[in-house]
């Protein structure tokens, strides 16, 4: 998987690049509009991460350029601007998703993967991890031979964990992923224990291995088989 990161904050770009590289993505990075346009003219990407406020112009223009080139890359806008106008303009110009800074890297990861899945029409609707098979269209989960019934939150949690396999997920990242904007109001993330516990026991009951590891004090981790 190859993604293009267009972001002028060096440190943030480095962190994103690191995170994606670690999960076997190829992540190219440019820090201005000009360089970004050069890149998209010459190469194809699976996904583009776009910051709107660039030193040499508005990121929206890159979206327009993509369209004029008839490119079909999925685009996720990552921006500090959160106005409704900005969002609408972004979506109108062909962006697929919008993530407001500051965000969790793990959240960005799961969104990128979901976007890539949606964009590939070649029938890859399945996320497979060892004996666990998730059909993202049917939203069904099979462990070995057994299908298991998950609640909406448990399902989202499972996908989130697998998308970020091998990475430590903080409780706040998990809570935000599960509750969306509502997570802003939470002052403790204790409710995720409940979902985590149920998910664990359902996977176990269906004969799956225990991949969910508690990282003391920090959060959870889906360990690589």
């Amino acid at each position: 998987m190859k993604i293009l990161l267009i972001e002028d904050e060096i440190e943030l770009a480095k962190s994103i690049q690191n995170y994606f590289t670690h999960n076997s993505f190829v992540c190219e990075w440019v820090d201005c509009k000009e360089a970004a346009i050069d890149k998209i003219c010459c190469y194809d990407y699976d996904c583009i991460l776009l910051d709107l406020m660039l030193p040499d112009g508005d990121g929206i223009e890159i979206l327009k350029k993509l369209r004029s080139l008839n490119k079909t890359e999925g685009v996720i806008i990552i921006s500090a601007k959160n106005g409704l106008d900005t969002r609408i303009e972004g979506f109108n110009e062909g962006a697929d998703d919008f993530l407001v800074k500051p965000f969790h890297l793990s959240e960005l990861m799961v969104r990128v993967q979901a976007l890539i899945r949606r964009r590939q029409f070649s029938g890859i609707s399945k996320v497979v991890f060892n004996e666990i098979e998730i059909d993202v269209f049917a939203k069904s989960v099979v462990v070995g031979e057994n299908e298991i019934k998950l609640t909406k939150k448990e399902y989202a949690l499972l996908l989130f964990l697998i998308a970020n396999k091998g990475r430590v997920l903080s409780k706040s990242a998990i809570a935000e992923h599960l509750s969306g904007d509502m997570a802003d109001m939470l002052d403790n993330f204790d409710f995720i224990y409940v979902h985590m516990g149920r998910l664990k026991s359902k996977l176990k009951a269906a004969g799956g291995n225990d991949y969910i590891k508690t990282v003391h004090g920090l959060g959870y981790k889906w360990i690589n088989g």
Binding site: E9, L12, S15, I16, Y19, A80, K101, A173, G219
Partner: peptide
Amino acid sequence: HELQTPLAIFKAKVEELIQREDV
């Protein structure tokens, strides 16, 4: 608004830090 970018970097760096095996 201006605080959001440094905050984003801060957040990303902490998230990177917690990934380290030697913590």
